[in-house]
Write a protein that binds this DNA or RNA. Structure first.
Lengths: 155, 155
DNA sequence: TCATAAAGGTCAGGGAAGGACAAAGAAGGA
DNA sequence: TCCTTCTTTGTCCTTCCCTGACCTTTATGA
């Protein structure tokens, strides 16, 4: 018997596939009512399934008329991307990050500006953190940014 | 069912786009009557949407013959970068960051991919930090990334 | 001059979303 | 069995919307 979480995930994926757009808009309480579960269950599904690492973007708004928008990004294209994600799967030193970014740039998968952006973000993002966390957080951030890049074309 | 606030915002934006000038003049009570809401609702929309951070200037006059003038600012490229830096000079909420990025994108100062990159970085980078530091660190990271983008032309 | 009417401003409060988090429950592996 | 990880719920919190009551400013005319 499948999880409720899996069922909800499948339902949302189905909605996304049938949508004209690349995104759908839902309301947390509606979905909770539909599946007769706690609203926070929906949040759980979003937090564990519809994450950047899996190629999704979630935007929300609180208050009256609040909503949740899920955007499914383009399917990934290149094996290099996969490798890049793999490389940053756990921890990433500054040097490893630099090297990886260089590879992506040489392969023309990212622009010079994007490369600089990645470097700056990865260097500055960890400044307020205790040392032991640096490489881990850097990897996490790298994965998110890679997922974003690998699933979005220039418009 | 969108918010009334969103509807009013859209209406005013529409008016601004159709206007010959860069500004429009309205009356609070008229607008309130048009949308069948409390006058303070209009004030709310102005205070939450048509703010300098989003590129608008609002001037009002009370008393008989009072009015509200909304001006959409079209800053020069340099001015826009400067404003962006200024906006992120101390603390930056997720929402303000989103709008700022949107502004830069609309002005074609950054690409769609770069915009997504910024958003993801700003959202994920603060996850391991205690709440009180979020906006501050976000601003710091934003400044670094802005500086990088400002000083690097395409390719 | 100054009372009055006609604007817009301010603010507290209630209601309607989603968010965060702890704790209990379930599933599966060592 | 026992431990770990994932799921599910419940409770309380934050954000956002909207209104109503009351305040301040400005124009005008007696």
């Amino acid at each position: 018997m499948p999880n409720l979480a899996d069922v909800i995930e499948a339902y949302l994926v189905e909605l996304l596939q049938q949508a004209e757009q690349r995104s759908i808009v839902i309301q947390r309480s509606d979905l909770a009512a539909l599946f007769a579960c706690a609203p926070s269950q929906v949040s759980y599904v979003l937090q564990t399934r519809f994450i950047p690492q899996r190629g999704y973007l979630v935007e929300t708004r609180r208050g009256g008329g609040g909503y949740i928008r899920i955007t499914g990004l383009l399917p990934s294209v290149d094996e290099l991307w996969r490798q890049a994600l793999e490389i940053s799967s756990f921890a990433l030193t500054t040097n490893d990050a630099r090297h990886l970014i260089g590879l992506l740039y040489q392969a023309r998968l990212i622009t010079a500006r994007e490369a600089r952006l990645l470097r700056v973000a990865l260097e500055r993002a960890v400044l307020r953190l205790e040392q032991p966390w640096h490489d881990e957080v850097r990897a996490e951030l790298m994965r998110s940014m890679l997922a974003t890049l690998m699933t979005s074309r220039e418009e």
